[in-house]
Computed example of a mutant assay.
Amino acid sequence: MRNSFIPGTRGRVRPLTLHGDPRLHAPCAEVTDFGPELASLVEDLFATMYAAQGVGLAANQVGRSLRVFVYDCPDDEDVRHLGHVVNPRLVEADGVVLRGPEGCLSLPGLEAGTERYDHAVVEGVTVTGEPVTVHGTGFFARCLQHECDHLEGRVYVDRLEGWRRRKVLRQVAKASWGERG
């Protein structure tokens, strides 16, 4: 996917939405306005992702409940994948289910073995409304599934069960940014 701008060079770094914020647990709205505000949001997503040293970032992770995510992520062969998707739909998630370490910029410093398929296909459009299809394998497939989950109101912790889930939730409660109850 080619962009007319260099991602992250013109955007501003926005504060990250952290686990416990209700915006992370609500489905995001479809994008209907493809104007300059959307282009600015995509630039801000890239700038924020790079500042936080992430490989993907969804709009609700910066407080905007819109169906948009960006990525700059390698696959298992160390091929770099760079782009964005507006109104993405995960149309395929198949292959082998692998449990691998997964983290999230909305749960800083934490990770857990999370099961994901090793192949994923996402369809959507660019900031200019051009159709785009993104194919991912390995780690990049994990990234695509992770970001699509965000837009449906899910974080990777929601996919965990048993002791893995309890362990991460205990770590969240102890974190300086975590939920206090």
Rank of each mutant, 00 (worst) to 15 (best):
L18M: 06
G20T: 11
G20L: 08
D21F: 08
P22I: 14
C28G: 09
C28Q: 01
A29F: 13
E30H: 13
F34G: 09
G35N: 11
E37L: 13
L38H: 07
V42R: 14
V42E: 12
E43Q: 10
E43N: 08
D44A: 03
L45C: 04
F46R: 01
F46I: 09
A47F: 02
A51K: 09
A52M: 05
G54V: 09
G54H: 04
V55T: 11
G56Q: 01
L57N: 01
L57Q: 01
L57E: 00
N60S: 10
Q61W: 02
V62K: 00
G63P: 07
R64P: 14
S65G: 15
L66T: 02
L66G: 09
V68A: 00
V68I: 04
V68Y: 00
F69W: 03
Y71L: 03
Y71V: 10
D72K: 12
D72L: 10
C73I: 15
E77C: 14
G83R: 04
N87F: 08
V91R: 03
E92Q: 03
D94A: 14
R99W: 14
G100R: 10
E102C: 08
G103K: 01
G103E: 01
G103H: 00
L105S: 08
S106D: 00
L107Q: 01
P108I: 10
L110Y: 02
L110I: 07
L110A: 07
A112S: 05
G113H: 11
T114K: 02
E115M: 06
Y117A: 06
D118F: 09
D118R: 02
A120D: 04
V121S: 02
V121T: 11
V122A: 04
E123Q: 15
E123K: 09
V127K: 10
E130T: 08
T133L: 14
V134G: 02
V134T: 08
V134E: 01
H135G: 15
H135S: 12
G136V: 14
G138P: 11
G138Q: 07
F140R: 02
R142W: 06
C143P: 07
C143A: 06
L144A: 01
Q145N: 11
